[in-house]
């Protein structure tokens, strides 16, 4: 395989799969007005991830996954509890809980035992898309050379899409009118808990490769880019994933080849570049919408 492709393809695949996974689920968070919950979970999963490693002593994906999902869900439940017990507004409760969890995670990471987790705090923030590459196996089938992160992300994307398809009608009804859906829904509590668990799982799967900044951007921005143009929930999800994928691919390529394209000394952080593009696209999309409706009016 071409050397450039061996570097670009796995990273591109990871970025696009993360867009599919986070972009899809993000629509539910945005429709529920819980955008910052994604940010909180992205920070809060860290101690669970490290604890999963410390308990099992291996970098077993399953253990870290379970630990992180528990931590993410616990943080959200705790912040809901704090709103009642300490009478904090939602934002303050979220901020208090996720900084505490994240600090604990950083502490664990920097402590001796967890050094072999092979995750430094900087990667947690900014991701490590740049380090993914395809190593053509000598005497194994081709897919043996695909980095594990890509497989994990593929699983996350399948989970997010499957969950949104199977529970789409309940999720839409809960987002539109929670009081009504909680009274009359088929299994509202179950679906809300599942959403929390699936969001946690997808965030965990994504953030080792793309970092917490890009996880947040991917959860929130594609949905908000699509929102002014969408006429149905399904339309919003499809549009958000389509635009998000385009921007993710563009952002990755510009950053990874910045030395050639922008004339910088080195390649740039691609997760950050994608996040910047996505965030910029949100107001642009709204301005386009406003201009279109002015013209037609």
């Amino acid at each position: 395989m071409n050397a450039a492709l061996a570097v670009d393809l796995p990273a591109l695949a990871a970025a696009l799969l993360a867009t599919l996974a986070c972009g899809t689920l993000g629509n539910w968070l945005v429709l529920r007005k819980e955008s910052m919950t994604g940010d909180a979970i992205a920070h809060a999963v860290l101690p669970g991830l490290v604890a999963g490693f410390l308990v099992t002593g291996t970098r077993s994906v399953a253990a870290m996954f379970i630990g992180a999902a528990i931590a993410g869900a616990a943080a959200v439940v705790l912040s809901t509890l704090l709103r009642r017990v300490a009478r904090l507004e939602a934002g303050a409760a979220l901020g208090l809980v996720f900084t505490a969890f994240f600090a604990l995670g950083v502490l664990l990471l920097e402590s001796q035992g967890a050094r072999q987790v092979d995750l430094d705090p900087e990667c947690v923030l900014f991701g490590s898309l740049e380090t993914l590459f395809y190593a053509a196996p000598a005497d194994a089938p081709w897919h043996a050379g695909v980095p594990a992160e890509v497989w994990t992300l593929a699983g996350a994307a399948a989970l997010a899409a499957g969950f949104s398809i199977v529970f789409g009608k309940e999720l839409a009804s809960l987002a539109f009118d929670p009081a009504h859906a909680r009274l009359a829904g088929a299994a509202p509590r179950f679906v809300e808990r599942m959403l929390l668990a699936v969001v946690s799982a997808v965030i965990v799967a994504s953030f080792a490769a793309v970092g917490s900044v890009l996880v947040l951007a991917l959860l929130v921005c594609p949905a908000l880019i699509a929102a002014p143009h969408a006429r149905s929930v399904r339309g919003q999800i499809l549009l958000s994933v389509a635009i998000g994928s385009l921007l993710a691919a563009a952002g990755y390529l510009v950053a990874a080849h910045a030395d050639e394209i922008l004339g910088t000394r080195t390649a740039l952080n691609s997760a950050g570049m994608i996040a910047t593009l996505l965030a910029l696209a949100v107001p642009c999309s709204h301005l386009v919408r406003a201009a279109v409706s002015r013209r037609s009016a």
Partner: peptide, 22 residues
């Protein structure tokens, strides 16, 4: 407000990550 907070945070910190890599 919720979405705006998330977008601004992601955008600025993302830009920060890019500049940081420079």
């Amino acid at each position: 407000p919720d979405g705006a907070t998330a977008v601004v945070l992601a955008g600025f910190f993302g830009l920060g990550a890019v500049l940081f890599s420079i």
